[in-house]
Simulated assay, not measured.
Amino acid sequence: MSEAAPLLSTTSLSIAYERRRVVDLWSQDFGPGLCWMRGPNGTGKSTRLKLLAGALQPQWGTARIAGIDLIKQPLDYRREVFFVAAEPPPFEHLSPAERFGFLARLYPHADAAVWQRHVEGFGLQAFLNQPLRALSTGTQHKAALAAALALGTRLLLLDEPLIALDAASHAHLQEALAEASAWRERLCLVVSHEALGVEPSTVIELEAA
């Protein structure tokens, strides 16, 4: 019996800045669940997430989600992935509720009930109708996480998701990550210097060049 195809795969994915190859011929297969990618500064962790999200154009190679190719099928690929960066989320003129409504029209598996659960878990009820630019960095981050966890994409990319969280929100995110570790058709790929507090399905250790 043949092994199941990987949910996500990278093939020779590469990008360089000022003649320094930050990600060099990265080829890796990922199954579903929760993957923790860690390593020292300078190993290209955040750059890898941006490449997988389509936020950076690779200079060589490609990635595939469930067989959908980043280079050959860019629009279909982007519908299958959502990225939460360490920086504040875009569309800062929108409120958290407006931003989720906008995103829900773009991602076919978005779930309003799941969104509401994470709104409550992150304590966002009082901030739903305020512009993101008027909120603290921590509240913006929680709003971004609540939306991302409710969009139902095959691939969820989280860059340092545990930063700037109060104790209750930290605990809620750990519960969400524990749920992700049991996913069978989706992958949550996390970059974090901080221990996740839950058992990931896989761990990827990146080494300095």
Rank of each mutant, 00 (worst) to 15 (best):
S2W: 02
A5C: 02
P6C: 02
L7A: 03
T10G: 02
L13C: 03
Y17E: 11
E18D: 14
R19L: 05
R20M: 06
R21W: 08
V22A: 03
V23M: 06
V23C: 11
D24Y: 01
L25K: 04
W26H: 03
Q28W: 04
Q28T: 04
F30R: 00
F30A: 00
G31R: 01
P32E: 04
P32V: 06
M37F: 03
M37G: 02
R38G: 02
G39T: 04
P40F: 10
T43G: 03
K45R: 07
L51G: 02
L52S: 04
L56S: 08
P58N: 05
Q59P: 03
A66L: 14
Q73W: 10
L75A: 15
E80G: 11
E87N: 10
P88I: 15
P88V: 14
P89F: 07
P90C: 10
F91P: 07
S95V: 12
S95E: 12
R99A: 15
G101I: 09
L103N: 04
L103Q: 08
A104M: 07
Y107G: 04
H109M: 13
D111Y: 13
A113Y: 09
W115N: 02
Q116T: 15
R117Y: 13
H118D: 09
F122W: 10
L128R: 03
N129T: 14
N129A: 11
P131A: 11
L132E: 07
A134Y: 10
L135F: 11
S136W: 12
Q140G: 07
Q140T: 09
H141F: 12
H141W: 11
A143N: 06
A143V: 14
A144N: 06
A147N: 07
A150H: 05
A150W: 05
L151Q: 07
R154G: 11
R154Y: 12
L155K: 02
L156V: 05
L158P: 00
E160D: 15
A164C: 13
A164H: 13
D166R: 08
A168S: 12
A168N: 13
H170K: 12
H172A: 15
H172C: 14
H172W: 15
L177M: 13
S181R: 09
S181E: 12
A182Y: 05
W183Q: 07
R186E: 00
R186M: 01
L189V: 00
S192G: 07
H193C: 12
V198Q: 00
E199A: 09
E199S: 08
S201V: 00
T202S: 05
V203G: 01
A209Q: 14
